[in-house]
């Protein structure tokens, strides 16, 4: 039988709710997993989770909007977060930021049209002794220079191959 995308998502959400427990205290766990799998948390997903945990969907939207690693709007497969806090600032994050924008063709807060990269600011990544630092999804890069940006992006692009990605994705979270 043909199943719609929505039905599939619902099944996944039910499985997640059962795995973490159908309590409000499981909400962040579930949202983190949805974010990881789908790069964003859609209104439909919020509604289903609300039903499963027996809370109002607005509550879920409120939680999603609070945390910087959860997004209601679609984000790219690779979210690049450049640390803008003081030590990285002093180590030259402005130049790195500029080069990121140049190489990706987007500014901070945007996602590339192909849905591959999002560019965001992060507050202190805890790499202050090795700034400038950035995160690509969960991977951390330190002592980043404008010159190194191209290589970092290439590394991501090489992981676009279907087979490479399939293995890569499940390993995280």
């Amino acid at each position: 039988m043909l199943r719609t995308k929505g039905e599939r998502l619902r099944d996944e959400l039910v499985a997640m709710a059962d795995k973490y427990g159908r309590d409000r205290s499981s909400l962040l766990n579930i949202l983190q997993e949805v974010q990881h799998r789908y790069y964003s948390i859609s209104e439909y997903a919020m509604q289903v989770i609300a039903d499963l945990l027996d809370i109002h969907p607005v509550e879920i939207h409120s939680v999603v909007s609070f945390y910087s690693f959860l997004n209601a709007r679609p984000r790219g497969e690779f979210v690049i977060r450049l640390c803008r806090t003081i030590s990285c600032d002093m180590a030259g994050k402005d130049q790195v930021a500029r080069q990121l924008e140049n190489d990706l063709g987007i500014t901070f807060g945007e996602t590339t049209p192909d849905g591959k990269f999002s560019l965001e600011w992060a507050n202190c990544l805890g790499m202050c002794d090795q700034g400038p630092a950035l995160l690509v999804n969960q991977r951390v890069y330190t002592h980043v220079t404008p010159e190194k940006i191209h290589g970092i992006l290439q590394e991501c692009r090489q992981r676009f191959g279907v087979h490479a990605m399939a293995g890569q994705k499940e390993k995280h979270i």
Binding site: R24, N29, Y67, S68
Partner: peptide, 26 residues
């Protein structure tokens, strides 16, 4: 191990608990 979701104020102990309970980290 439970994960945060990117919020400095969750380092405050009551905000941290709120976050664990599935709330905004207030």
């Amino acid at each position: 191990v439970r994960m945060g979701s990117g919020s400095y104020v969750c380092g405050e102990e009551t905000a941290l608990i709120e976050s664990l309970e599935g709330q905004r980290g207030e």
